[in-house]
Design a protein around this nucleic acid. Structure first.
Lengths: 199, 199
DNA sequence: TAGATTGTTAATCGATTAACAATC
DNA sequence: TAGATTGTTAATCGATTAACAATC
């Protein structure tokens, strides 16, 4: 994953040694060489790695050249925040549709998108070739929405609702638990527990 | 961290063997025994671990018995979503104040809290003994807010703004990059890259 | 050719797991 | 006492790093 930090290499140098790359990424140079050798023999002995070549290869390998159309379900505060989130497009994610079930929300806009009724999900997924769905509904609605998403053919779900989903094993789900992030912070507050929780 | 999954152990059994605990947490029983032995000798040979005792010990050790007052800066969509997020209190986090700088927002309510002007930050931090701040502002405002938070004496920051903060080394910052979560999902979509990114 | 740096093998380190004496 | 299970040591496994022959 540290390879991601090498994608934005400045083009100020033509080539870069594994030693320099390691310094940038904060890892060991042997690790850099080993990992890059996976992609084939793209370094030159005595010289280093071609920066331009390396960058385009990493972008390809890390999936940054592809575009992922994303469907967002739930147009509440969290859904709206995600729809406006500036960070997605950098990594190739584009929210192409926002869904809700509340009649008064349907037809309104969030960011540049018009909220559609969840009943249109299947149609939009097929039309736009959506491969990823984000669930930003209340916990109580999440399972029902997940079932629907699954049936629409989507195979990747990012779940922000604080609930555990039951879904088929061929669908990937990641649950984002925002309080986990806060918890990690508290370990710093009380270093006493650091040791006990290290594993 | 897997220990967290043991906090909610049902009290249906008086005792529980390391084997059973391991099955629940999805780890090796030797690991469970080793980690629990950190806390002292709280198991009984031939019997297992006292469930009630174990649970209260874990709650204590994982910091779940403490209460962390949190200040939230930014009352936009993301801030509002966080203010209403149901998952925080489970883990002992309570958002005690919401701040913004926009005059028209100050005085309005999100959830059960009245939005205060950022100028009141220092006072509230002192009064409520706030130890954690969440930045949910636009990226452009994040650094300025971070400086202010730091000066108020807070030592832990959770940053949702898609920007890297420069702060003193005695302040812990965690950046939540929502697109990282999506990226992890895409590894499933293209298993070809799994290997290359494993390290 | 001499210096530099890769690609890869071997050594090291740390974390996980198996095994078992201690003991309830 | 016999069976079960802990606490801990030793063995294993995997990942990281050092070292060096290959070679630009």
């Amino acid at each position: 994953m540290y390879l991601r930090s090498l994608v934005d290499l400045s083009a100020s140098h033509q080539t870069c040694s594994s030693e320099q790359l390691a310094a940038i990424a904060g890892v060991n140079s042997a690790q850099v060489r080993k990992d890059l050798s996976h992609f084939g023999s793209l370094g030159t002995r005595g010289v280093g790695y071609n920066v331009a070549e390396l960058r385009s290869l990493l972008r390809e390998a890390l999936g940054l050249t592809r575009d992922y159309p994303v469907a967002l379900i739930g147009a509440g505060n969290l859904g709206s925040a995600l729809a406006n989130y500036e960070g997605f497009e950098t990594w190739g994610f584009e929210i192409v549709a926002v869904f809700d079930t509340e009649a008064e929300k349907v037809g309104q806009t969030v960011g540049e998108l018009t909220i559609q009724h969840l009943n249109d999900l299947e149609k939009v997924v097929a039309d736009r070739e959506v491969t990823i769905a984000i669930i930003a509904t209340p916990a109580s609605a999440a399972q029902e929405v997940a079932d629907r998403i699954t049936q629409s053919g989507i195979r990747s779900i990012l779940n922000f609702a604080p609930s555990v989903l039951h879904i088929p094993s061929n669908v990937s789900v990641r649950r984002v638990d925002l309080s986990t992030e806060l918890q990690i912070l508290t370990y710093h507050l009380s270093s006493r527990t650091d040791e006990a929780v290290s594993s």
